[in-house]
Nucleic acid binder design. Structure first.
Length: 550
DNA sequence: ATCCATAGCGCC
DNA sequence: AGGGCGCTATGGAT
């Protein structure tokens, strides 16, 4: 059963599609939670313009829903997908994908406040939904697209739930860590004591009294003045220098980074009542990965993870998919040899055991090089062996690269297509083919063609890996609701990071959660790739603190 | 005062 | 000359 829900005026309009109920119900926002709770018992799919605009308000009222169809996210996928044929032309209105108002209910008066969320009349939402259903049904892969849209919408629900629930975060632990490393919390705008002490040493070593080590240009000039030849102030380059300033400078940079990215100000802004609540943006990345807005949740440094501690009586089940992208590539390419390696557990070690690579480190560099399009250095050197060993899998990414170099569009396994290159890209290519083109024009064109090729090469793998992860999440989210509760607490997802999840659970349910996480990974593999025998290995840890997970 | 690009570093 | 991001501080431009 599908129920379409749109915001209308000060409330919402709700209608059941294909149901017996005549017409739509109009309810005020404060009546909505009760209505949703009542209808949810019938396990509907909620069809709405934008999960991010509606669901947080329901969560705030204590209401969760099991299934949804996000018209905005679905539109973005379908309008660009090469799987969608002529029906795609009926999805021209990009306002759907951007979450902008599609139709405004009434002529705005001077007193109307601008709405933060799209105003869509019910008939428009119903019509858009019908267009999307038709586009899927008439596509080259209806089953894949249906799976993708379901997983995408489930991700949207989960993203709102994660933002609402937050990641358990012990401010006392983090504050103690900051004080230990940086010194006591400074006055606003001031430098912590340990950082200031390092700055003093740096200035002395470089004989640069007024130097602000936070300024890369200033620092570079000071290095030059001191007779140190460096091209940049990057860590990797500083490490190679032989000079007494290097040690305090590297320490300074590391601590300054901690202070600015995850210091006291960060904690005050993003941690409340023992929970870190970032703002997740599912599909915020072109490849379909999640992004975040504020809080930097997708780069929670290892240094900070000791403060992520489960509530009393609970523990964290931390699971991450080992070498997800190569496994995904093996499956989508139907590469039997690489699939065999995937079943060995550690895919990189399997390459060593098979005599393909001499060390695990080399195997990893070579594999990532193939996914990213490395041409030089160590990875470039190891590439020929990989091409010979896995011609099918590497052939798939090579082909994706060539498509991109020609300015073409590539598509993930479930049907997300890359955007075509911008007009400026074509312009560069055109200029190089003119009779009067210079050698520089041609060099530039070749370089930008290769750049776009590396993008499309990685897009198909990174994008399909994101699809696997979304299916994994969706199944896990559902499975966790069936595990019951202990002392009023039930297992819940609290974090997601590309190929890694954290479930906070009562201790007693941790074994069941571990099973559910593994079962969900198996099911995700089957949902995407059927019976093709690729194994999606998980590393699962049961810990009190996130820092103990690896 | 505010916007924008860059450098640098964190994560996958 | 290795893909995708977010974030902060800086410094020049407006």
């Amino acid at each position: 059963m599908d129920i379409v829900l749109v915001e209308a005026g000060g409330g919402v309009e709700v209608v059941e599609l294909g149901g017996r109920a005549e017409g739509a119900q109009v309810v005020a926002w404060n009546e909505l939670p009760a209505l949703v709770r009542r209808l949810e018992a019938r396990r509907p799919r909620w069809v709405w313009p934008d999960t991010a605009a509606v669901y947080p308000r329901l969560l705030a009222a204590g209401v969760t829903v099991a299934r949804a169809h996000d018209l905005r996210l679905a539109h973005a996928i379908l309008a660009g997908s090469t799987y969608v044929g002529a029906a795609g032309e009926q999805l021209p209105d990009d306002r759907w994908a951007r979450g902008e108002p599609v139709v405004v209910d009434a002529a705005p008066s001077l007193l109307d406040l601008p709405s933060a969320t799209p105003a869509v009349v019910l008939t428009e939402a119903v019509a858009e939904h019908a267009r999307q259903v038709h586009a899927v049904a008439t596509s080259a892969h209806p089953d894949r697209l249906r799976l993708l849209l379901a997983a995408e919408s489930a991700s949207a629900l989960l993203a709102a739930e994660l933002g609402h629930r937050g990641l358990p975060f012990d401010e006392t632990v983090h504050a103690a860590r900051l004080t230990e490393l940086l010194g006591p919390k400074p006055v606003p705008g001031g430098r912590p004591a340990r950082l200031e002490a390092l700055a003093v040493r740096i200035r002395a070593e470089l004989a640069a009294p007024g130097l602000n080590p936070d300024s890369p240009p200033e620092l570079l000039r000071a290095l030059h003045t001191a007779g140190i030849e460096a091209e940049s102030t990057r860590q990797g380059e500083l490490e190679r220098l032989d000079h007494p300033v290097v040690e305090p400078l590297l320490q300074y940079k590391q601590l300054a980074r901690l202070l600015s990215a995850n210091g006291w100000a960060w904690m005050a802004a993003w941690v409340r009542e023992g929970r870190f609540r970032p703002d997740y943006v599912p599909s915020g990345v072109v490849t379909g990965r999640w992004a975040t807005r504020g809080g930097g949740a997708l780069s929670l440094p290892k240094q900070v993870r000791s403060a992520v501690v489960a509530a009393p009586g609970c523990c964290l089940v931390v699971a991450d998919a080992a070498q997800l992208e190569p496994r995904v590539l093996a499956a989508m390419a139907r590469d039997e040899a690489m699939a065999r390696a995937s079943r060995a557990g550690d895919l990189y070690q399997a390459l060593v055991d098979a005599g393909v690579m001499d060390t695990r480190a080399h195997a990893k560099v070579a594999m990532l090089g193939a996914l990213y399009g490395a041409t030089s250095g160590e990875a470039g050197h190891l590439m020929p062996r990989l091409l010979r060993t896995f011609p099918v899998a590497t052939g798939l990414v090579e082909e994706a690269a060539r498509t991109g170099e020609r300015g073409g569009v590539v598509t993930t396994w479930l049907g997300r297509s890359s955007a075509p290159p911008p007009e400026s890209w074509h312009e560069v290519q055109r200029r190089a083919s003119l009779p009067e083109a210079t050698a520089a024009d041609q060099r530039r064109a070749r370089a930008s063609a290769r750049d776009w090729g590396r993008f499309t090469r990685n897009f198909v793998v990174q994008g399909t890996a994101a699809e696997w992860a979304a299916c994994w999440l969706a199944d896990l989210r559902r499975a966790l609701t069936e595990l019951g509760e202990v002392d009023g607490r039930r297992p819940v997802l609290v974090y997601f990071l590309h190929d890694e999840v954290i479930v906070e659970t009562p201790e007693a349910l941790a074994p069941a959660v571990t099973d559910a996480v593994r079962a969900a990974a198996r099911r995700a593999g089957e949902l995407l790739f059927g019976r093709f025998p690729v194994e999606f290995a998980l590393e699962v840890a049961r810990v009190r603190s996130y820092a103990d997970a690896d």
